[in-house]
Design a binder for these strands. Structure first.
Lengths: 207, 207
DNA sequence: TTGAAAAACGACAACGATGTCGTTTATAAT
DNA sequence: ATTATAAACGACATCGTTGTCGTTTTTCAA
């Protein structure tokens, strides 16, 4: 008499299921994906899948958090690069993501967040809120530390610039998700973004 | 022996159905809306509704075009205002829309366009493409005519600025649609936008 | 090797939505 | 009034998805 599999086994299995789910979400987006799809993709039974996840929404939620976990690391304090370099790096990373948007959860993410509207009004503090705040905050901190170090001389409040930046990226991602990277001219738009950021942040030259 | 109702009657009825559909879409968004919902809202039978619209997607498509019809008028050539005034007017109009985003089809629009992904890849020229091009073009023309009149001295290509502007607006609308206008600080972000536009377009002062 | 407990299975009932189609009702020309 | 025709109705068969639950299989400790 005993519990039957290690907790590690269960974690591995869960991760496998999340991988299967991810490839379905990449192919079909969030809204059109069903539990059935995930079962088929994972080659697992109905009962087994439901033992791990209650429904598609929970499934996506867990996948999202799992993926976010990986991406947190980007904004670690970094003294090798100037603040402006860190900013342009981040911007280019976003650009890369858009240029291969088919291999990205961007579209599914948008669908997911849009679908939460009803559930959200009840609660108030949702993961999507937290997520938005987190990224805005990370950028704000970056701008502020750059300012303290004398590398930036912002002409607008740091937080305002952060939000502005996030809005632009979200919009370009959305448009690119359904029109494609060529149609939206991702590369050009990124130039325009950097132009704007330079005007807002005034990075001191040479730094 | 004869046809039974005037073609005008049918148009009126269609418009009524579109109104009913609109109020459902406002309440439930695109994805969650069913033909049944529209029947209930319109107080009409199944057969009648299907006589006018094949399915939800067609229904939304027609609604979208109907609504767009109304909004085309904004960019008429206008000599009473400077180009910069026209631009700020447009920006403020967008702001208004976001501040009452609950009464707006913004959310449903995003859902709708995101849901088209599969159908789109086949065709290539979809309404969403046309729509994007139309707005980009309208803004580009506005910037160019302002430049010719000597009211603007753009530091980037007009079309680049247009796309950039559209991306930002789309992003802020998306974020506002699921976080609310207070959370995203719409008003502040619009300030930041105007700051950027001023730097990009260099409107000559006094004009 | 055995047996208890957990994990995996898959049949099934229930639901909600879809699109069709035979029937009924309303319209307007005769 | 009559009648041909179209509009409106709503019952119905169908489909895909969901979540459950009794059964079978696997796992590991004793």
């Amino acid at each position: 008499m005993s519990p039957k599999v290690s907790d590690e086994y269960k974690n591995q299995k869960k991760t496998m299921l999340l991988q299967a789910a991810k490839s379905v979400f990449l192919a079909k987006g969030y809204t059109k994906t069903t539990m059935q799809d995930v079962m088929d993709e994972a080659g697992i039974s109905r009962g087994a899948l439901y033992a791990y996840f209650d429904n598609v929404e929970h499934l996506y939620m867990e996948l999202l958090q799992f993926e976010d976990q990986v991406n947190v690391l980007f904004f670690s304090p970094n003294d090798d690069e100037t603040s402006w370099q860190q900013i342009t790096n981040w911007v280019h990373k976003q650009q890369k993501e858009m240029e291969q948007i088919e291999q990205t959860l961007t579209q599914a993410n948008s669908e997911y967040f849009l679908s939460i509207r009803d559930s959200k009004k009840q609660e108030g503090e949702t993961y999507s809120t937290t997520r938005y705040d987190r990224i805005v905050n990370a950028l704000t901190v970056l701008f502020q530390s750059g300012t303290k170090k004398g590398e930036l001389q912002p002409r607008l409040p740091a937080e305002m610039i952060s939000r502005y930046l996030v809005s632009f990226i979200d919009g370009l991602m959305l448009d690119t998700a359904h029109l494609g990277a060529e149609k939206t001219r991702v590369a050009e738009q990124m130039e325009a973004l950097l132009f704007s950021l330079r005007e807002m942040l005034r990075p001191v030259s040479g730094k």
